[in-house]
Amino acid sequence: MSRTAVHYTTAAAGAAILLLLVVISIGVHRHALQAAILRADPDTILADPRLAAFALDRGRNVYRRHCASCHGNAGKADQGFGVPNLTDDDHLYGSGQVSEIEEIARFGIRSGNKRGRNLASMPAYASAHPYALEPLPPQSPQQIEDLTQRLLAFTGRQTDQAAADRGEKLFRTTAGCWDCHEFNASGDPSTGAPTLTDDIWLYGGSHDDIYRSIARGRAGVSPSFERKLSVADLRDVAVYVANLSRRSKTHD
């Protein structure tokens, strides 16, 4: 072998070793970052640019693989399926903290996981037994119309004030709506009962959409990924989803 060939071989071996060291260093660095993310209080991660950048990068990939099929790549609402908008500041459960989102991703909503969120669902008032968990009286077509008018009235869209007034009374008494949605219809993030006074609608806010929600009931599902995703994946995707809402606030 000539001296030149020996030099080339030595240089190539050196480069390969250098490359290997770089790859190992990057791997070690990424591992350390992920470990720091896992050890951190989840609700502080977005405030740390170094950790946030890493978690968002990994979280985006996890989101696209496992969440986008329902929530879409952009995290926008799909009222047909009752898929909430992940990019606004309105949260059905909790207040949009990373830890809350991580818990939902891990245990789900009405997912069959006992640690998931499953305290309540929307009764189907146009049925003989509107609600499985407690006895609630069915409502007549007129009563459902009255309740619909009441909900439309929150955004000034009622077409029959007398019906809206009757609906208000039903809301606070026999229909039992107050039990989940509170007397002032402000909702309850611990049970996932949405606020009814704003113009954000999970299943559509037209007269017919609201009437149908009251008549037929609703019970959206979010799967439990406890056994499908690693702890690191769950943390990173929670950071990513929390940031979707945060990002839209920043843009506003």
Binding site: H66, S69, C70, G108, S111, G112, N113, K114, V221, P223, S224, F225, E226, R227, K228
Partner: peptide, 16 residues
């Protein structure tokens, strides 16, 4: 028993 049944349900729900 409930948890095992629930586990099967959870696996089913993760794919849309």
């Amino acid at each position: 028993v409930n948890a095992t049944e629930g586990q099967v349900a959870q696996d089913a729900l993760t794919s849309r």
